[in-house]
Design a protein around this nucleic acid. Sequence first.
DNA 1: CTGTCTGCAAAGTCTTTGCAGCACA
DNA 2: TGTGCTGCAAAGACTTTGCAGACAG
Lengths: 137, 137
Amino acid sequence: MGESISKLLANYDIRITEQRKKILKVLISSSKPLSASEIYNQLQQNNYQVRLSTIYRNLSNFHEKGLIKELNFAGKNQNYYEFINDHHHHLLCTSCGEILCLDCPLQDYESSLARETGYEISEHKIKIYGLCPQCKK
Amino acid sequence: MGESISKLLANYDIRITEQRKKILKVLISSSKPLSASEIYNQLQQNNYQVRLSTIYRNLSNFHEKGLIKELNFAGKNQNYYEFINDHHHHLLCTSCGEILCLDCPLQDYESSLARETGYEISEHKIKIYGLCPQCKK
DNA sequence: CTGTCTGCAAAGTCTTTGCAGCACA
DNA sequence: TGTGCTGCAAAGACTTTGCAGACAG
């Protein structure tokens, strides 16, 4: 496990440090996007001490290198980060904060949009908000 | 003009003040979403002095009442606000920051999603990122 | 008149930065 | 060994809050 994370970092030309392995591991293990402080808390709970500034620096680093995505949700005043597996989107419960992953419904929309606008499209993000079955009640 | 803005506020049960009329007017007149400080600057330029805290308070107020939308764009660490006309989305140039409005490509996606997930969908947001024709060069 | 709003100042939260010592390659 | 990373502390950007005086209805 530590092995494969080291390889991943190496593949992305990121120098391997204990802190980076720990931070990335948290992101990879998570089923949903995490904020910097959530990562910080998880590491604390595992008795691993890192500075928040280190976490921020490495999240930027990972993001620039294309290892993770940076997300911002309406009403949350902080960024969330997520390891990039496949392309997908999120459905957020506005009551309990639960985050669900969704398939992309815009598979071939981008090319037609590029044609219409003259833009070179690099990316799109979809956020869907609602109430989960529990909170609906 | 000032007339119709007052009526709009009244319709939304918002007490009419000079500051609110001015802030809302800026949002209505703008063709793209604005941040709190952009609104502040525009008002300054028109020789109208309002505190930033007042702007923030009223943006929250307008948003709660459903008069405006709150938006956050990847890589921008501040919220943007936009008067609600019709339902649409945004295409953002990652180089010059230009913002374009787009029709919604997900007209009937929400109902099928609700069926699949059990969620009660309230809203969705799409952001598309790319390079505008000028910046592409 | 009465409850609400604004100006003002201060604090709060999230994030970034500078520097010195430490660690990876 | 040398460059880049981390800890630490401080600053920065954006946003929120508390209070007293001002204003809308």
